[in-house]
């Protein structure tokens, strides 16, 4: 849909943004179609039936069941078309594709920390290739935020303590606004940045030019095997004390005392932070909590690594980026930041 010629209309630059625009124009059309007859009727009545004699007693009209039925049913039908249109678009916006490039986002007052699956990190900027599906896995270190890209016609809240997701496929190279759209305190209006959409070649060059640190999976393996010592219980073959993590992703697990859950990102995150809240059958509640010892970014890396043990995720098949150990500043960016006074 060509919308460039419309004054005061925002740029439309994602694969589904035309759907939102079309819905918007449909609603404007309906609004105008309602407004014109009603406003015309009001004007007509006000002029035609103006007071000609003080305290007149015009003839009574009680109402009309037929009219009431008509003007109940027609708005209902129209509102259902609006609902269905919205539902279809919502489904497109919020159902995550399986074959997308992964990007990890951690919000904190008042910046966006972003890491690519190939390891590159950015702050308040997100570089993505054009015509490629990109899926964001997001969380926050402190309060609610919202990752909003008006030109792509999508946004999602970023919620502490859980993962939320956002996806898009940019269709036009360019630089677009990135806003935090959920009020997050003092410098909320400063929590802005940009999404830079590059041609494929330019994006490859950008990746090359930004020496990557470890990829999230590598970083997760490092944490798992060395820094946090997860491997001492979770990677010892058949005799290990902790749960076997290979091929666990997407499976159903049974808890001691009843209840089941599907192993997903949320479940893995919670198992690291609150292990005793969901002890799986066949295991002892002996795992200590890692709350306060891992940052949100490290958690994302751990989850990415554990997922890779099940062969899931695009990151497992990601093109190998320069994996040389990166300079420390890039690697540590923000990971030692305070936890908001907890």
């Amino acid at each position: 849909m060509q919308t460039d010629w419309i004054p005061l209309f925002p740029e439309s630059a994602s694969s589904f943004s035309w759907q939102i625009d079309a819905l918007y124009f449909y609603l404007i059309g309906i609004s105008v179609a309602f407004m014109i007859p009603i406003v015309a009727a009001i004007f007509w009545f006000v002029v035609r039936y103006r007071e000609r004699e003080k305290f007149a007693t015009p003839e009574e009209i009680h109402g009309s069941i037929v009219l009431e039925t008509v003007w109940s049913i027609i708005p209902f039908i129209i509102s259902m078309t609006i609902f269905l249109g919205g539902a279809v678009v919502y489904y497109t916006q919020y159902r995550m594709p399986d074959d997308a490039m992964q990007v990890y986002v951690v919000g904190k007052q008042w910046m966006w920390k972003i890491q690519h699956e190939t390891g590159q990190r950015e702050i308040n900027q997100l570089h993505v290739p054009v015509n490629t599906k990109v899926k964001l896995t997001m969380t926050t270190e402190d309060v609610l935020h919202d990752f909003s890209i008006p030109a792509f016609r999508t946004k999602a809240d970023v919620v502490p303590g859980r993962y939320t997701y956002l996806w898009f496929e940019a269709t036009k190279p360019g630089t677009y606004h990135l806003f935090c759209a959920e009020y997050c305190g003092l410098n909320h209006s400063g929590m802005i940045g940009s999404v830079v959409v590059l041609e494929q070649d330019d994006f490859e060059r950008w990746l090359q030019g930004n020496a990557a640190s470890q990829t999230p999976v590598e970083q997760g393996r490092d944490l798992f095997e060395n820094k946090l010592g997860c491997a001492s219980c979770h990677a010892g073959g058949s005799g290990q004390r902790g749960a076997v993590l290979e091929n666990i992703y997407g499976k159903e697990v049974k808890f001691v005392g009843g209840g089941t859950a599907i192993v997903n990102d949320e479940y893995l995150r919670n198992s690291i932070l609150n292990p005793s809240s969901q002890v799986v059958e066949g295991y002892q509640p002996i795992m200590p909590t890692f709350k306060g010892q891992v940052t949100e970014e490290q958690l994302m890396a751990l989850v990415a690594y554990i997922k890779s043990l099940s062969g899931v995720d695009a990151s497992a098949t990601a093109p190998s980026a320069p994996a040389a150990p990166a300079p420390a500043p890039a690697n540590n960016m923000g990971s030692n930041s305070n936890q908001g006074g907890r």
């Binding site: 759907q19 939102i20 819905l23 918007y24 609603l27 309906i30 609004s31 509102s79 609006i82 609902f83 249109g85 919205g86 539902a87 279809v88 678009v89 919502y90 489904y91 497109t92 916006q93 919020y94 919202d146 909003s148 008006p150 016609r153 999508t154 946004k155 999602a156 759209a181 959920e182």
Partner: peptide, 15 residues
């Protein structure tokens, strides 16, 4: 109605 239409609201909410 614009804001009740869920797909459109993803773009419009918080604006």
């Amino acid at each position: 109605l614009f804001l009740g239409s869920v797909g459109l609201t993803v773009h419009l909410t918080d604006t």
